Computed example of a mutant assay.
Amino acid sequence: MPLVQILSFAASRALLSDSSLAKPFLEYLKKAEGCLNVIHGFQAEDSTRLMIFIFWKSSQDCDNLSKRDDYPLHIYELPTSLPSSLDIKKINFNKNPMRAFDAPVTDISIIKVKDDCPLEEVERTIASLKALVIRWKVENGLSDSAYPTYFAWGEVIGVPDTYGVSTGWDSVEGHVEVIKWIGENPENLVDISSIIEADIKHVTVARSCAAR
């Protein structure tokens, strides 16, 4: 499965006015060896924050880019209002998450589990999350084809006990409704008790970013 690298940063005023200013950096990424695709969009919770998703053939290809002599210059020239706002994560998904980005809104959640939580327990927790969403859809009379329809997850490389989850939704409000339903029903929380923290972000991918 492809590794997905996520770069996010506070956009400069110029970039907010003209998103094409990000194009040189996006093209630089697309031309890197081992790059499968590059997509981007602004975060729903903070519309001044740009999120870039790079799909790599392997972790080594991703690492090779950061070792290139011209890489620091391209990072330095990012159209950001605050260089220190740059955040980079790498997620080794269990399956290709691209379908989640085809949805109107994509949820990118970073979840923290209990220290030294066994992988088997993490897998059970993720399965329980999926089951809860399916139950919510059934209780609300939604069809199987209704969002969310795709669920990908994987380890955040280099960050212990931390995982990324990607799901496609029809809207941010739709996801918030499910989160509220889970929280209002204590029995729902039993099977996901290994999760101690969740950082939930949403993004709408620029539709000009078709898969290569």
Rank of each mutant, 00 (worst) to 15 (best):
Ile108Met: 13
Ile6Cys: 07
Leu86Tyr: 06
Asp18Ile: 06
Ala11Tyr: 08
Pro104Cys: 02
Thr48Pro: 06
Val4Ser: 05
Thr48Ile: 01
Ile196Phe: 04
Arg68Pro: 10
Asp63Cys: 00
Ala103Gln: 06
Ser12Tyr: 11
Pro79Asn: 06
Thr149Asp: 15
Leu129Pro: 02
Pro97Asp: 08
Lys31Pro: 13
Ser81Leu: 04
Lys112Ser: 14
Ser143Val: 10
Phe151Cys: 04
Cys117Val: 05
Val133Asn: 10
Asn96Asp: 15
Ser8Ala: 11
Glu120Thr: 10
Ser81Gln: 11
Phe151Ala: 02
Val165Tyr: 03
Ala100Trp: 08
Thr80Pro: 11
Tyr76His: 10
Val190Ala: 08
Pro104Gly: 01
Leu50Met: 14
Ala103Asp: 13
Ser20Asn: 09
Arg49Pro: 14
Leu21Tyr: 09
Ile54Ser: 09
Asn188Thr: 08
His74Met: 14
Lys114His: 09
Val203Asp: 10
Ser19Phe: 11
Glu33Lys: 13
Gly41Tyr: 01
Gln5Asn: 12
Ile196Met: 04
Asp116Gly: 01
Leu189Trp: 07
Ile75Trp: 07
Val105Arg: 03
Arg124Thr: 15
Gly183Thr: 04
Ser84Thr: 15
Ser47Val: 12
Ser128Lys: 06
Lys114Trp: 04
Ser128Phe: 12
Ala210Glu: 13
Ala14Lys: 11
Ala206Asn: 15
Thr167Phe: 01
Leu50Val: 12
Ala32Lys: 08
Ser171Tyr: 03
Glu139Ser: 05
Val178Ala: 02
Ser194Lys: 03
